[in-house]
Simulated scan of single mutants.
Amino acid sequence: MQPENEPGDQERRSFIEEARRAQIVSATIETIAEIGYAKASFVQIARRAGISPGLITYHFAKREELMKQVMLTVHASMEQALGAQVEGAESYTAALRALIEGFVFYYAERPKEIIAIGQIASASRDAEAARSWFEQQNAKTLTELEDMFREGQEAGELREFSPRVMAVSVIAAMEAAPAELITRPDTDVAAYARELADLFEHAVRRPASEASNS
């Protein structure tokens, strides 16, 4: 029989704690999506998780800490899902398509997550740290997209344009997708994703006539 303080017991406790934290984060997302950020109290979240409010405060001392963890969890999930698609792309335009289409499909499959982080990001007071983190992640994504466009131009695949302006435009268009799909739930998600990707592929791709003259 293993002593209580053996490494295996510590690992088991850690696993249980992580599972509980994940349960609380999931319940928080459900709560915000259902009744809104302002009403998403520890009591409401605990009710949906089937636990006591005290158990939430054991893992997250402050509401701000929990909201930031929601942002971290959703962003990590999205980054993993989109990163795998982009990394497998064979060209810069293919990578852009994978990013845009992947985001639209990600939202369509997980609308509650997008609603939750959107409300947290726009909230005030106790969500200030979460919002600040969200803005930092947006800035990082913007820089990465700029770099991708710049590399594509240097490789001769993409036409000349401002990488910054194009990156801002792509992100703005992707962020507008959730609102469109919410207000029009009968939207053909595949068609929407394809049209949006087509739009920006045409916007960045180097014309064939220029490529043949190089």
Rank of each mutant, 00 (worst) to 15 (best):
Q153N: 03
V189A: 02
Q137C: 11
E144C: 05
K140I: 14
A173N: 03
R205G: 09
T183L: 08
D188C: 03
S162I: 02
R205V: 11
D188G: 06
T141C: 12
W133Y: 15
V204W: 00
P207C: 10
R164A: 11
A191H: 04
A208G: 11
E175T: 10
D198H: 06
H202I: 10
A193Q: 03
A167I: 08
M166G: 03
D147V: 11
A193D: 06
F134H: 05
A167Y: 04
R164H: 14
L145H: 00
A193P: 05
A208Y: 08
A191E: 14
T183H: 09
W133T: 10
T183N: 09
M166P: 04
E146N: 06
L158F: 04
E180P: 00
E146P: 09
M166R: 03
K140F: 13
P185N: 12
S122L: 03
R205M: 03
T187K: 05
A155W: 07
Q136T: 15
L199D: 05
L199E: 02
G156S: 08
S124Y: 13
V189M: 02
E160Y: 13
A123K: 07
T187L: 09
P185V: 15
E180T: 14
S212C: 02
R205L: 07
E201M: 06
L181Q: 08
L158V: 07
A127S: 13
E146F: 03
M148R: 01
E160L: 15
E195T: 01
G152A: 03
S162E: 02
G152N: 04
R184I: 07
E195K: 05
A179F: 12
S169G: 08
P178R: 01
E144I: 11
S122T: 08
A129S: 13
R205S: 05
P163F: 00
E144W: 12
F161N: 00
N138H: 15
R125K: 12
N138V: 13
W133K: 12
E160G: 11
T143Q: 15
A177I: 05
Y192T: 09
R164Q: 14
